[in-house]
Computed example of a mutant assay.
Amino acid sequence: MITQDQLKQQVAQAALDVILPQLQPESVLGVGTGSTVDRFIDLLGVHRDAFGAAVSSSERSTRRLQAAGIQVLDLNQVASLPFYVDGADEVDHQLNLIKGGGGALTREKIVASVADRFICIVDETKLVETLGRFPLPIEVIPLARESVAREMRQLGGRPELRAGFITDNGNQIIDVAGLAYGSQPAEFEALINNIPGVVTCGLFAISGAHLALVAGQAGIARLELQD
């Protein structure tokens, strides 16, 4: 039996194998946040001379990239990214995602939006038929915490403040269990994002991943959107 840690290491290597042949010395990579991405960063550091720099979605990943000898740029310095590599808390077969378990969802969504190709790396426990088992993280301006929570209850959710947690942007996170997204998660994402005081929600359905690499006991599976 392959352990979950070993699966994370395998899928991080699989992502590196996908992107490395396509990198140029001037390439700038988008890098996400989380335990699986930590393994990707460690592998990427061995090949730091194969590309120019990285853009990070969190202070945590920035520190790890710099420790690996990789230059980290501010996204405002970069016009485009060939790849953005990140994990997810849930991914379905249409490559819709729930992200934000680590609290970096807003910056993750921003960096992903600039990338030509978003590669999601997960182990098989994160692959689901229908999104919703994992509570939906919502980053909120502190003033709006309770008003957003009331809106979530109206939508059938059970909101809970992530106690003691402040995002890199200085905001709070509400984790909402019990939401049912149905067959139109993109519409649900837009609905939540339009609530006053919401910075963004952890649904990545309006713009999901282009490719998901899923590590399982039988190897690496590829889920890919066709152009």
Rank of each mutant, 00 (worst) to 15 (best):
Q10F: 07
Q10Y: 04
V11E: 05
A12L: 01
A12V: 00
A12H: 04
A12E: 00
Q13S: 14
Q13L: 15
Q13V: 11
Q13K: 15
A14M: 07
A14P: 03
A14I: 10
A14G: 04
A14W: 09
A15W: 11
A15P: 03
A15I: 09
L16M: 06
D17I: 01
D17T: 14
D17E: 15
V18R: 15
V18I: 15
V18K: 13
I19T: 05
I19F: 09
L20K: 11
Q22D: 15
Q22K: 15
Q22F: 14
L23S: 11
L23I: 08
L23M: 13
Q24S: 15
P25A: 13
P25V: 13
E26F: 11
E26M: 07
E26Y: 11
S27D: 08
S27L: 06
S27K: 05
S27H: 07
V28I: 15
V28A: 13
V28L: 12
G30R: 09
G30V: 07
G30A: 11
V31Q: 13
V31G: 09
G32C: 10
T33N: 13
T33W: 14
T33I: 13
T33V: 13
S35E: 12
S35H: 14
S35T: 15
T36V: 14
T36F: 15
V37I: 14
V37Y: 09
D38T: 13
D38M: 06
D38Y: 07
R39F: 08
R39G: 09
R39L: 14
F40Y: 07
F40E: 08
F40I: 04
I41A: 01
I41D: 02
I41S: 01
D42K: 12
D42Y: 04
D42F: 07
L43H: 01
L44P: 01
G45S: 00
G45K: 03
V46H: 07
V46R: 05
V46N: 02
V46S: 04
H47L: 01
H47Y: 12
H47T: 01
H47Q: 03
H47F: 03
H47M: 00
H47V: 01
R48N: 04
R48M: 02
R48H: 04
D49V: 00
D49G: 03
D49F: 03
A50W: 04
A50E: 08
A50C: 08
F51V: 04
F51C: 01
F51G: 02
G52Q: 04
G52Y: 04
A53K: 08
A53Q: 06
A54M: 02
A54L: 03
A54N: 00
A54I: 04
A54Y: 09
A54V: 11
A54C: 14
V55F: 00
V55Y: 01
V55W: 06
S56T: 10
S56L: 06
